[in-house]
Nucleic acid binder design. Structure first.
Lengths: 117, 117
DNA sequence: CCAATACATCGTAATATTGCAATGAACAAT
DNA sequence: ATTGTTCATTGCAATATTACGATGTATTGG
């Protein structure tokens, strides 16, 4: 009757090791799109190609720190590139990574639709 | 010099009202895919078409409560249907909603790739 | 009726996410 | 040099997510 070892370890943290590489990759990229502000940001950058944080902030109506934070999340996932020019940082879509997302998504659809459709 | 009204309201909650309907819809569906377990579940259900929580739980190696919780998240987003038969609940892909996700994703790609590619 | 099965839900603990004011760094302009 | 601009980072508060044991309900099998 051991009620020991009920110690809560790894509480609140996703168990990524249980899943395949490509499943984790898709989850990471989907997480970028799981917040509407990040979708709006990607839409905006895709439309202007070479954008500043202050302009994005003004467009999506979130504060500069919040906008910057979202930009870092997108960049860390690989969907954005950036380049400093003077005091300005220009953000651009990383087209290669966007293509990767596209193919992972395609793969997900093919697997999921396999026998149900 | 009013340091009043610095009261933290709406802290920690997404400002969905700032974004368009379709952006929010895509974000909601992307949130489903933002956890690897939920991708694995959808893959599995798409493959077997009519699955039980216990079998999914055994396959993805998460506890029954955790698996059930993920299933409710996916179902609430509309990507799953379910039907009770005796003591068993059979889960199936909601093909219409999956198609909706596909088209929202397509739309996102077209907007984002507009001028950068 | 009684045990076993399948599942959702509750409660709880730990971590993650979201948002912004305040701050500091780097550069531009005067 | 001083001021203004642009941005990332820090610190904090509030909410959301993740995971699972324990529990209750409903059904099946004996």
């Amino acid at each position: 009757m051991r009620t020991e070892n009920l110690i809560t370890e790894n509480m609140g943290v996703s168990k990524r090791h249980l899943h395949t590489m490509s499943v984790n990759q898709l989850a990471d990229l989907a997480k970028v799109l799981s917040h509407p502000a990040r979708i709006s940001i990607l839409n905006y950058i895709g439309d202007c190609d070479g954008c500043l944080c202050k302009d994005i902030s003004a467009t999506i109506k979130l504060s500069q720190p919040t906008t910057s934070q979202h930009l870092q999340v997108i960049k860390k996932a690989g969907l954005l590139k950036s380049k400093f020019e003077g005091k300005s940082q220009y953000y651009r879509i990383n087209v290669e990574k966007l293509g990767k997302l596209k193919s992972l998504f395609q793969e997900f659809f093919e697997t999921t639709e396999a026998k149900c459709c």
